[in-house]
Design a protein around this nucleic acid. Structure first.
Lengths: 221, 221
DNA sequence: CCAAAAGTGTTCTATGTACACCCATGC
DNA sequence: GCATGGGTGTACATAGAACACTTTTGG
C-alpha cells in the first residue's frame, strides 16, 4: 500500500481578505491521485534552505518580494496522509494584506482565493489543516496584534474592527473595540485621513515594536 | 562547512518533578562534536512510524509502557543547527508523573534528570529548545489542566498547588487556588485520604473527560 | 438639509485578589 | 495538649459588557 520512502515538505496556509471574506490561497491539486481537488502551496525540503525560508519562498513566488506575517503552525506526520509515501508536512501560516495582488507571471500556477467557509475539495488532510490554521488565527486575534497584518499600511479603526468581526465571525462593540485597541498602544495615529461617504476617518498605522508587549495580554474576551 | 544532506529527527523534552524541582531528562551528548554536553532524547525518522509514535517510543524506551502527556512543540529547521548536516528536529514535550521511575535496563543510556534552573551544557540549540518548552508549559498551566500530568493518579490539593507553584515559580493563594480548581470541575474527589503529619488530606483524581472544556478558560491570571 | 460613517463616556456586572482562623490527626 | 498540614468565606478592587447620541463630511 505504502512504500518505504519518507518525503518532507513545507506548506503554507495563506490567509487574506478578498471581497470582504476571509480567504485562503490554493493551487490545483496533483491530478494523479486527487482529481478535481486543490492543495496548499508548498515544496519539498532541500539542502541549503531553512524551513522558514522555504515557506517564505513559496509565498514570494506568488506575491513577489513583499513582507508578510509568517508563523509555523504544526508538523503533520501520520502514516495515512498520502497514498504513495509517508509524507511529513511542516505547515506555516501567513497573513497577506488585502491590497496585495498575485503577480501576473505566476498565473500558470492558477493560484486561487477561496473563502474559508466555501472551501473546495482538498488533497490529503489539507482541509483539516486549514481548519486548524483558522482556529489558531481566531485564537491569536484575542491575545495578539495579528489582525493588522491583513490590512494595508494605513487603515481606519472601522476597517480594523470589520477585519476582526470577519475573522471572529461575531459583531464587536464599537466603543469597547476602539478603547481597547487604542489603550493597548499597538497602533499610532497618522496625519492621513480617509475620505468617503460620511465623516472622514482618522488613519492609523501599526507600531511593530509593540507586538511583544501585547502578546501576553488578551485583547478580546 | 556543511554537506548537502538533510537529516530529520524527532526529539522529546521530558519534564517531571524530581526532588521537588521541575526537571528535564537528558542523555549524554554525542562526543564527536559536543564534548561534555548533553542532549534531548530522540531518534531519526524512519518509514513506518508517525512522528508522534517516534516521540512516544523514545520515551517508552526510558520509562516503559506508561501513559503520559505528549504534545508537539515546534519544528526546528535552521541551517546552522548542526556542524555536519542540515538537521530538522520535530520536538515534542512530555510530562511524566513524579512517581514514575527510569527502567533499570536502560541505565546504559545514562538518562539523567536536571533541574530546569541548573541545566548543563547542551548540544546544538537544545538549550533554547528546553527554554521554549518551559515557557510553553508555564503558559499552558494558566489555561489548561496540564498540571495533573506531573502527579500520580491520586493527589491532594496541596500537592497540586505545590506543583503549580514550582512550575510557575510563584506562590499562589491557597483559598483562591482551591476554589478555582474545584469550580473548574477538572478533578473529582476519591474515597482515599493521605495520612501523614497533620490532618489527613482528601485525595482527588483527574477527570480526563474534562480537559476539552477547560482548554478555553484561563485558570490563573 | 439629509444620508452616511466617525467618534465619544458612563453604569453595571463579573471576575480576580487579599486576607485569618478553625479542624483533624500523630506523637 | 501541641505541632503540623488541611480546610474554609467574605469584602474589596479591577476588568469586561452593555448601551445612544453627537460630529463631520459629500451630495
Amino acid at each position: 500500500m505504502q512504500n518505504q520512502s519518507i518525503q518532507v515538505e513545507v506548506c503554507a496556509v495563506i490567509f487574506s481578505l478578498k471581497n470582504s471574506r476571509l480567504s485562503v490561497l490554493l493551487l490545483p491539486g496533483e491530478t494523479e491521485h486527487f482529481a478535481n481537488s486543490w492543495r496548499l502551496p508548498g515544496k519539498p525540503i532541500r539542502p541549503g534552505s531553512s524551513l522558514e525560508e522555504l515557506a517564505g519562498n513559496s509565498i514570494q513566488e506568488i506575491f513577489g518580494d513583499r513582507e508578510f506575517y509568517l508563523e509555523q503552525l504544526y508538523t503533520y506526520g501520520d502514516l495515512d496522509r498520502h497514498p504513495d509515501c509517508q509524507m511529513v508536512s511542516v505547515i506555516y501560516f501567513a497573513l497577506i494584506p488585502s491590497n496585495e495582488q498575485i503577480i501576473e507571471c505566476r498565473n500558470e500556477l492558477q493560484p486561487t482565493w477561496f473563502a474559508v467557509d466555501e472551501l473546495p475539495r482538498l488533497d490529503m488532510d489539507h482541509h483539516s489543516i486549514v481548519e486548524y490554521a483558522l482556529r489558531r488565527l481566531r485564537y491569536k486575534l484575542e491575545y495578539s496584534a495579528v489582525g493588522f497584518e491583513l490590512l494595508p499600511e494605513f487603515f481606519s479603526l472601522s476597517e480594523l474592527q470589520h477585519t476582526y468581526e470577519l475573522i471572529l465571525g461575531a459583531k464587536l462593540d464599537k466603543r469597547n473595540f476602539r478603547r481597547r485597541i487604542l489603550e493597548s498602544g499597538i497602533i499610532e495615529p497618522t496625519p492621513h485621513r480617509r475620505m468617503g461617504e460620511g465623516r472622514p476617518a482618522q488613519l492609523y498605522r501599526y507600531q511593530d515594536d509593540a507586538i511583544a508587549e501585547v502578546k501576553a495580554r488578551r485583547l478580546f474576551p
